[in-house]
Design a protein around this nucleic acid. Structure first.
Length: 288
DNA sequence: CGATTAACCTGGAAGC
DNA sequence: TGCTTCCAGGTTAATC
């Protein structure tokens, strides 16, 4: 389901109920998702409090009172559902309707910071998602986290940084931007949309991006991600925000899933090609 | 070494 | 109404 804006939307929805909550019970219903659950997973979580609900790239990041850090990646179809018990639902509290039957792989009982009870579950039909636990002090320097590129919406990302990350690479821009080492958090939708806004061809070789194009592209990445977050993400199939509401950004796609439709800028038909085994949508006239 | 492809899974939509 | 094929927001192991 998710690229950076969708994960950020989920983060914002979950945070009010999860921050300060204590994990009372963990019901792990299978040994693995995309990867095995962490060793002694339930044991390490029970009794811990969730100290913050953060995001890094497409990962939700939950620092715990034990010093360990839990991370969750939603893969393509992962979804968190929060059920609040009777009597503690407040106006504005959120609730997700039932997740896909038969695919709730994890459920945790929580006591919220206000004393109310809640259940947080993770459902994922395709099981491309995964949940990990980092021992104290090892988050950001271990495993998958270590190799992530800069956060696109942080001051660590700009035109020169992007140009440097692309320098010398023979791969098409589309593939380079999907690579989480180049910049962290983009996926198929927002790569297509950012390239359109920057008027750069997805087939252009990364090493041919000069200072001007790098500047346009970095700005386009930041603009499209910011606008998508503002709209609550994009809802195509499985994804809904933490409050169960569909995102709205899919209404504003310029190119993604618009094969044959007129380019909003020049009117030419939007093209679809396959790169790295995935669909790329672009305007063959506007994007060079 | 870097760059491309195949594989991991399920379900929904489209085609016959 | 089936049955088959294709496709999907991601990551990574294997292969060039």
């Amino acid at each position: 389901m998710p690229e950076l804006p969708e994960v950020e939307t989920v983060r914002r929805g979950l945070a009010p109920s999860l921050i300060g909550a204590r994990i009372d019970e963990v019901d792990q219903r299978r040994p693995d998702l995309r990867f095995p659950f962490p060793e002694r997973f339930a044991e390490r979580l029970c009794g811990a409090r969730i100290e913050a609900v953060n995001r890094r790239a497409k990962f939700l990041v939950l620092p715990l009172s034990t010093g360990e850090v839990m991370t969750a990646h939603l893969g393509m179809t992962g979804r968190f559902t929060l059920r609040l018990q009777d009597g503690v639902v407040e106006p504005g509290a959120f609730y997700l309707p039932d997740p896909p039957a038969g695919h709730e792989h994890l459920a945790m009982k929580l006591t919220r910071s206000d004393g109310g009870q809640a259940e947080l579950s993770f459902a994922d039909p395709r099981r491309f998602g995964f949940i990990e636990l980092f021992e104290p002090g090892t988050f950001e320097t271990t495993g998958r986290m270590r190799d992530l590129g800069p956060e696109p919406l942080s001051s660590a990302f700009d035109g020169p940084v992007l140009r440097q990350a692309l320098a010398g690479r023979a791969t098409p821009l589309k593939a380079a931007l999907l690579d989480q080492k180049t910049v962290a958090g983009l996926g198929n939708i927002y790569v297509c949309e950012a390239l359109f806004r920057a008027r750069i061809s997805p087939r252009r070789l990364s090493r041919s991006v000069g200072p001007a194009r790098a500047e346009r592209l970095a700005a386009a990445v930041q603009a499209v991600l910011s606008e998508a977050i503002e709209a609550g993400g994009s809802t195509l199939r499985d994804y809904a925000g933490a409050d169960g509401q569909a995102g709205g950004f899919q209404q504003r796609f310029d190119v993604y899933d618009r094969e044959g439709a007129p380019c909003r800028r020049c009117g030419a038909a939007i093209k679809r090609i396959v790169q790295s085994g995935r669909s790329t949508f672009f305007c063959g006239l506007c994007q060079r």
